[in-house]
Design a protein around this nucleic acid. Structure first.
Length: 278
DNA sequence: ACCCAGGTGGCTT
DNA sequence: AAGCCACATGGG
C-alpha cells in the first residue's frame, strides 16, 4: 500500500469528481470523513482532500505517483478552462460554479468502453451495481483494504471468453451480448495493434452509438472536445437554447460552435448541475 | 402498474 | 434522413 500526496491542487472537489457521472466505482468512505474509496482499473484506493491546504492524498493498493497524477488530471489548469467557458458562454456560469471542483478523470479505455455500454438506457445506481457484479465475478482479486474486498475491472480476454448466459445472469439485460462482442473486438484490436482511436473506430463497436462513443472519447481517450448528448443534456440544451429535443446533431454542432475544444468540460458542468436539481 | 434511465440496432416510411 | 419500436432490468 502506497500513499501519494499532491500539493497546491486547485479546482478539485471529490464529490464533484465522483458524482458527476463520469465514473461508477467510487463511493463515499462512509466513516464520517469526506473521503472516497473505489477502484481504477487494477487498483483500489482511498482518496482524501484538504481544500484548505489544497492537498490531495491517495492511498492505493497499486499504481505509481504518475498513474494517479494522470488519473486525476492534475496537470490541467481548470481555472483557465472555466474562465474561457464562461467568457464564451455566460449562460453556463451557474453550472460551472456549482461543479467547480470537477476534473475529468483519465480512465482506462477498455473499462470505459464496457462501463458506458452498460450505461445505455440505464440509471446510475443500477449501472454501478452492474459494474460491481462484473468485477466481482470476473475481475482479479485485489485484496482487502479500507474495510472491504476489492476486485479489479476484468481483462478484455476474460469477458471475451465468458459465456453470454453467465453475463446475462448478472442482470446485465440485453447489454450482455454487446459486452461480450465488444470484448472480443477489443482483444482482436489489441492483437492487431490497432486499438480504437477515432470516433469512427469506436462507433464500429456493437452497442456503441453516438452518445456512448462520445463518452468513450471524453473519458477514455482524453478527447475533451467530445460532447455526449444524453437525456439530461437533451433537456438542458432545449431549456437553455431552444434546440428541439429530437435534434441531437444540432446540439452537438451548437456545442462545438459555442465551446469549441472545451465542449467536453462544458458538458460535465451542465450535466452535474442540472441532474442534481432534478 | 407505470414511467424512465448517461441509447442503440433494425426495420419501415 | 427521419420516425418507430424492442430490448432487460429495476429505481422511484
Amino acid at each position: 500500500m502506497n500513499t501519494y500526496t499532491f500539493e497546491t491542487i486547485q479546482d478539485l472537489d471529490l464529490q464533484h469528481i465522483f458524482e458527476c457521472g463520469q465514473c461508477f466505482r467510487w463511493v463515499p468512505a462512509g466513516d464520517g470523513t469526506p473521503d472516497y474509496i473505489g477502484a481504477a482499473g487494477k487498483y483500489a484506493a482511498r482518496i482524501s482532500h484538504d481544500p484548505n491546504l489544497c492537498r490531495l492524498t491517495v492511498t492505493a493498493t497499486g499504481g505509481d505517483e504518475e498513474f494517479w497524477h494522470r488519473y486525476f488530471d492534475l496537470q490541467t489548469d481548470y481555472t483557465a478552462i472555466k474562465d474561457r467557458l464562461v467568457a464564451s458562454e455566460p449562460g453556463i456560469e451557474k453550472a460551472v460554479r456549482y461543479g467547480g471542483g470537477i476534473r475529468i478523470l483519465n480512465q482506462d479505455l477498455y473499462e470505459t468502453i464496457i462501463s458506458f455500454i452498460i450505461s445505455q438506457n440505464n440509471n446510475i445506481p443500477r449501472i454501478r451495481k452492474n459494474i460491481e457484479s462484473i468485477c466481482e465475478s470476473y475481475g482479479e482479486y485485489i485484496g482487502e483494504a479500507f474495510g472491504r474486498k476489492w476486485h479489479a475491472f476484468p481483462e478484455p480476454e476474460t469477458l471475451a471468453s465468458a459465456e453470454e448466459a453467465d453475463l446475462a445472469a448478472l442482470r446485465l439485460g440485453y447489454r450482455a451480448g454487446y459486452i461480450k462482442a465488444a470484448s472480443e473486438r477489443y482483444v482482436s484490436d489489441v492483437k492487431s495493434g490497432s486499438l480504437p482511436e477515432t470516433r469512427e473506430d469506436i462507433l464500429s463497436y456493437r452497442g456503441v452509438g453516438p452518445k456512448v462513443a462520445n463518452c468513450i472519447m471524453l473519458f477514455g481517450l482524453c478527447d475533451v472536445g467530445a460532447f455526449p448528448v444524453d437525456t439530461w443534456v437533451r433537456h438542458i440544451m432545449n431549456d437553455m437554447y431552444g434546440i428541439p429535443e429530437s435534434d441531437m446533431k444540432e446540439m452537438e454542432r451548437f456545442a462545438h460552435e459555442r465551446f469549441g475544444n472545451l465542449a467536453g468540460y462544458a458538458q460535465q458542468y451542465l450535466f452535474y448541475y442540472y441532474r442534481d436539481r432534478k
